[in-house]
Design a protein around this nucleic acid. Structure first.
Lengths: 371, 371
DNA sequence: CTCCGATATGGAAACGTTTCCATGTGGGGA
DNA sequence: TCCCCACATGGAAACGTTTCCATATCGGAG
């Protein structure tokens, strides 16, 4: 552990304000402001003196002072569950790209999927006087903090949520996408399916996907899909997930609520000695890039989180300019045909096959080495 | 496209300030402030009146006013190249978790790996009067904006960079990690190796990795590794990458500067009909979770970006509390033994085998379907 | 009864801007 | 020569806080 030699850096002047510039240029503050902002008349003489003074002093405006006086902070608050989830991270990056040109900056908070934390976070963002909010949270329709934003007249745009409570949202139609998956499963002859989710309770997206999936299954006279809500542990340790899968009735196809889960399922299946898609079909959701590069490319619903971010940013920008709230149509999704989806094995098409005895899960760790 | 019915929401009062609270409570502003902050004496009577008034009015402090008067914005500026890169996204999430408890908020900017944009971004953050900066950028040692921060007395912590210019950095020892890879390659008998990078010019991390890799190769009397800088296109389209690889001298092992590239290499190898690791060994860098779940688990240098974020946040927090800058030791990395690394094929151990004719790249697209 | 100290309270300055308004200067037209 | 107007300039208020300081009130001790 190395300590840097202590040196008070040549701190020219902690703060140089417009007052300093004015003094040095020998003019009034108002004049300096006008010159620096090009917002009013000034003689060529004083103009150049002010410019020079600002230059010499290394002056730059304090956004704080400006914000206070204009009551516009040029800051947009953003709340997402977690940046560790690349879907949200990409969305935020999408916001960033749109906002970059506009002078707005992003104040970011994350709730870690916690329905209390996200309300607090929004309250804090509001206290920081953000000009607008872009939010993905647990329950936007019941959020007190979001109601406060409305009271305060702060524009809000949602991301990922199906539109709710009159708040415009940049989203994909989760239900429709899920129905599409059910259709594919059905067309291939799958009957016994499952829906896999992590944090079902705190994700309306997951719930909407399940709802769509279920609805379409029923429409086709298929048995209701099994809803499996995983714990964090199950999701993160393939061995645990393998146990869970092994204990299930004779599934032939699994719809995972996101691609990570889908890939984890593949891993678990491998541990069980099942082959994907021969013994089990898997479809994911989101369409992360990696899925495409896999040895067995993942079949999935492909969405574009960055586009979602961009749309949310544009929507908010419009609101900030006084536009009326407009709900744009959902962003498109596409079904990406991978190699993890195939018809069920002939001996499983009928609904009454005997569950195969999976090889002992515990003896399978070596499998890790050869994949 | 649906337009919401126009309704001016019941906007109780655009802004309720402490002045309003004071008026309603029938006391002075100073008193209200003291009560609300518990920062001074007040009679029980007035105390309760103020509390009630604040409650009724739905008062909350404006962080702006506070920041202006105390010249502490309770905001930390953060610059990363892009949140679309999960390594940075996780690091930011790491910052977030540490900062969450402290009252500091994160103001985020991203440069898209652009060495001019990142300077501008920092300048903007400084203008917003951030109390501190956490930065990953193209050239921190030459950044004018970073120099400005120093002038202004704004504490700075780096992430990912090897420490430079007296700025403490939360990082892993890229050189050491790369040497470790060279050692592994060497021990297994590889001689002809390559280092694969994207944006070599703008990433000191990549350069440090290459330097370490090269140094260790020379130390062991191995031929210099080929440095291959990919274009975005090559990195993103496996077919193009396959062409590039096919054109190379008879490599037996590739060290990719990050796991995405490593996975892309595997894909490209598959397209060429090469088997990993039989025909080509691949080692990545970063240790992203997915690598572990792959069919052929990726050998890689495992790092923990979130830990990097946490360390950077703690370092900055210490600086913010007046601590002297301290460079902590680099964070640990581990070599993750995957299944993509093996000895070269016997017929390739000698250094003068004939380059095999790769099958036509163009005819290989169908491969996508079966992986 | 007087005086002192402790406690309670509010006015006002300061933080860094922008902008309204008033003042001052100059030139051109009558 | 005189006026008026356009232009240049600076003072001051306002934005929402906190905090210093002065004032007011009260109880108790002498």
């Amino acid at each position: 552990m190395e300590t840097f030699p202590y040196r008070r850096v040549e701190q020219v002047k902690a703060k140089v304000t417009i007052k300093d510039v004015a003094r040095r240029a020998g003019c009034g503050i108002a004049t300096a402001s006008r010159v620096l902002n090009n917002s009013g008349p000034a003689s060529a003489d004083v103009r150049s003196r002010v410019q020079k003074a600002a230059q010499d002093l290394g002056f730059s405006f304090s956004a704080l002072g400006r914000a206070l006086q204009s009551s516009r902070s040029m800051t947009v608050g953003c709340l997402v569950p977690s940046l560790a989830n690349p879907v949200f991270a990409e969305a935020v990056q999408g916001l960033q790209t749109v906002l970059a040109g506009t002078g707005y900056q992003l104040l970011i908070a994350s709730s870690n999927y916690d329905g209390a934390a996200d309300n607090d976070a929004i309250a804090t963002l509001i206290a920081k006087e953000v000009d607008g909010l872009i939010v993905t949270m647990v329950a936007p329709e019941h959020s007190a903090a979001l109601a406060l934003a409305r009271t305060r007249g702060i524009p809000v745009a949602l991301m990922f949520h199906d539109p709710v409570a009159g708040l415009p949202s940049a989203h994909v139609d989760n239900g429709a996408a899920a129905r599409e998956v059910a259709r594919r499963f059905g067309d291939l002859g799958h009957r016994r399916t499952a829906f896999l989710a992590l944090r079902f309770a705190s994700s309306d997206r997951s719930r909407n996907r399940y709802a769509g999936f279920l609805a379409e299954c029923r429409l086709r006279g298929l048995p209701d899909p099994v809803l499996i809500e995983l714990t964090e542990t199950e999701a993160n340790t393939p061995e645990r997930l393998a146990q869970t899968l092994a204990a299930l009735p004779d599934l032939t196809a699994i719809f995972a609520s996101n691609d990570f889960l889908a890939i984890a399922v593949q891993k678990a299946a491998r541990l069980l000695g099942w082959r994907v898609p021969r013994d089990l079909s898997v479809v994911g959701f989101d369409g992360i890039e990696i899925g495409r590069l896999l040895d067995v490319p993942l079949a999935t619903i492909e969405t574009e989180p960055a586009a979602m971010g961009r749309q949310a940013a544009l929507t908010l920008l419009d609101l900030l300019q006084g536009g009326a709230p407009v709900q744009l149509p959902p962003l498109p999704f596409t079904f990406r045909a991978g190699a993890t989806l195939a018809p069920p094995r002939a001996d499983r098409r009928d609904d009454d096959r005997v569950a195969p005895r999976p090889p002992s899960v515990l003896s399978l760790k070596t499998d890790l080495k050869q994949g």
